[in-house]
Design a protein around this nucleic acid. Structure first.
Lengths: 146, 146
DNA sequence: CATGTAGTTGCAACCAATTGCAATTATCAT
DNA sequence: ATGATAATTGCAATTGGTTGCAACTACATG
């Protein structure tokens, strides 16, 4: 039942190893709330054990992403963030390219899109966690005035 | 009618300057076919005039992206590519995260999604040129076997 | 056409992320 | 338990992209 042993199992059955470094990174992801940058994860891991390299963090995040245990999102702020998939509600972000306001988007829209694409082409898109850029209502109206 | 003078006009009216460096970068984008990396653009510009800095290329691409004259796409290969918006057909890419196969996606799917989001929330998403990751039909079937 | 000013450039330093490699280690099969 | 082996690690070097800054320049305005 512990998510930890579950994750370890997933790692092993996919030919990966459950190393101490990875367990620390997993811990940071699981206990950190929401979006974490690689640097934040690195910091937390280092507090526990200082001899871990940042490249190990990135490589581990790469593996976890591949296994779809974490999601990676570029919120357009310059840093990429990572989130533990199990604990997140399915959600998406609408980010205004003018005022940077971030609002949420119901998952249903993308669920439908995914189903359509899958039905037509057989391709199964990963649509768990999208960042969609555009113009929010306010900025759009302002832009249309000119 | 010349796209060049049109673009210059857009730059000026938005408070930007039409510098020689920018015109060279615009030329590279307009004459290069399809997706170009920043390095490719830099190379072409340097061939014409060697004293242009790579940071100028990135900054110019940033401005053009903001003005929506070029689109930026991360195809998951590690390098970001840029494309002159005027000349491209609206298209999207389905990229298999397993075998890296790239197929095209009809724009209509995203058009519909965009219209829905806009109708419901007032947010107008930029959906000109998307890279959607997932599993292609072949890899999905293989994965389901196990 | 002269001029003030805001936008831009090149440079160098910097930051985030990736990669090659030799040493190490978790895991599987015995 | 032991040993073989493939995955992983830390390190150092590298790549792709960004930023602060002083010098410069396009261009709107008069």
């Amino acid at each position: 039942m512990s998510c930890e042993t579950d994750t370890v199992k997933v790692l092993r059955t996919t030919g990966h190893k459950a190393t101490p470094q990875r367990l620390m990174i997993l811990g940071a992801l699981r206990h950190g709330s929401g979006h974490l940058t690689a640097a934040e994860i690195f910091g937390e891991v280092q507090a526990e054990y200082p001899y871990v390299d940042i490249s190990t963090v990135y490589r581990t995040l790469g593996v976890l992403k591949e296994l779809r245990l974490v999601s990676e999102t570029d919120m357009g702020t310059g840093d990429t963030t990572y989130e533990w998939v199990q604990q997140q509600e399915r959600h998406h972000h609408l980010i205004c390219r003018n005022c940077d306001e971030v609002t949420s988007l119901d998952h249903q829209y993308l669920e439908d899109l995914g189903a359509e694409i899958m039905a037509e082409s057989g391709f199964k898109p990963d649509l768990d966690h999208f960042a969609i850029f555009g113009l929010c209502a306010k900025c759009r109206l302002e832009a249309e005035q000119n």
